[in-house]
Design a protein around this nucleic acid. Structure first.
Lengths: 120, 120
DNA sequence: CGACTCGTACGATAGACATCGTAGTACGGC
DNA sequence: GCCGTACTACGATGTCTATCGTACGAGTCG
């Protein structure tokens, strides 16, 4: 037995299985500006993992934790502990399998809006 | 000449201008199952207008009014009075101009999810 | 006019949510 | 073993939201 397969630490984070991911949940998760921002950063380098503290967000740490949890529970991101840090990555494979083209369209839309004259 | 062309009711409904439509708002509007359902029906025939009562929704009339207002205020649908009825249509032109491909990706995702084994 | 239909407005309510601060837990290094 | 760093858990709070019921306004048709 590989220890990895059975080593269920208390620091194990619950993720929804691919089939449990709901479109409504994903949309709700991305309808918050802070979370949308997080996802855009993660998407910029999909193969990389980023710690929570990597992000420069306009909210406190408690709130940051909350947002990351919403993203994880809705199935948008994957979180893994690595030492004291919690690494975050986009679940692009799952999302693309479930909803082909959606993530790209969403990211393109976000980029487009960010490029609009009047705002962030 | 049909009077219909000029018969504008005094009741005017406020819609956001194209540039005022926010991605977050659109996503939030579509993150509710009832509203997503409405949009899917509207999208099935984009050139047609449907009255509110056309939809068979699992909520009361008051709630239905509420959902249609959320959709209108977020810029997803357009509403026009026609006699006692209020006709609803998707703002596909504006959404496609702002976020090319997004609406189609969202609708495809919704269809795909609806076709999934376990649910609506 | 009067009745009927369609949708609105208003008020109430229960639940969700974004936000914060403080106190605490897990891990890695000294 | 002890300290600092990274994140969490918990509790509080104000706001938003989905829902309802009832009462009303606007338009159509007899």
């Amino acid at each position: 037995m590989t220890p990895a397969a059975t080593a269920r630490s208390s620091r194990d984070l619950p993720h929804p299985a691919r089939e449990e991911i709901r479109l409504e949940g994903v949309l709700h998760a991305l309808s918050d500006p802070v979370r949308l921002r997080i996802v855009r950063v993660l998407a910029a380098d999909s193969d990389e993992l980023f710690s929570c503290s990597y992000f420069d967000l306009p909210v406190t740490k408690s709130t940051t934790t909350h947002h990351f949890r919403v993203l994880r529970e809705s199935g948008v991101i994957r979180q893994v502990y690595r030492g004291t840090a919690k690494m975050n990555g986009l679940r692009r494979d799952d999302l693309d399998a479930l909803f082909p083209g959606l993530l790209d369209a969403l990211l393109a839309a976000a980029t487009r809006q960010a490029a609009r004259p009047a705002n962030d």
